[in-house]
Amino acid sequence: MSKEEKKVNRRDFLFTASYTVGAVGVGAVIWPMIDQMNPDKAQQALATTEVDISSIEPGKSITVLWRGKPVFLKRRTSEEIAEARAVNLDDLPDPQKDEDRVKSGKDEWLVMLGVCTHLGCVPLKDKGDYNGWFCPCHGSHYDVSGRIRKGPAPTNMEIPKFEFVNNNTIKIG
């Protein structure tokens, strides 16, 4: 009796084969329905932004739009850079050296996503307890390097992929 139960017969094979082919077919139909909600080619075409930085004075910053999000470009003074580098890493919730957040040789340029890592609001510049940014939504304080110092945000503000096309132009993305 038990011998017969274990025996795989033709019908079991047909069932398994049918279900397998059916599952693959259903998956092949469902995937386009899901993928259509991902960014389309028109959105992907907006994936890079070039910015002219020639007119930014030291100590000033501008905000540009990249992929629908604000990007802060700040030309920092030497005092600000010194301040950012004097911080003890042990005091940081998300330890990261200021040197790692800028391109070496272009240390005055801080290019970062102007999006609070808590819930996505845009922090205000030159506000907060650390001479950097302050998010009005839930009170996160960022320092002059854009690192989280106090408040609910878990990580430092993100540095996007960018490069210097020449001395006056930055390409983000």
């Binding site: 386009p32 329905m33 993928d35 259509q36 991902n38 389309d40 080619k41 028109a42």
Partner: peptide, 28 residues
């Protein structure tokens, strides 16, 4: 309907957008 725009100036272009840009838009 997630990609189509029901406006006389935009409808035709939005259908072409579906055909060319939207992932699998042509298929759908």
């Amino acid at each position: 309907a997630m990609h189509y725009v029901a406006h006389a100036d935009l409808a035709f272009a939005s259908v072409e957008h579906i055909m060319r840009d939207v992932n699998y838009g042509w298929l759908i």
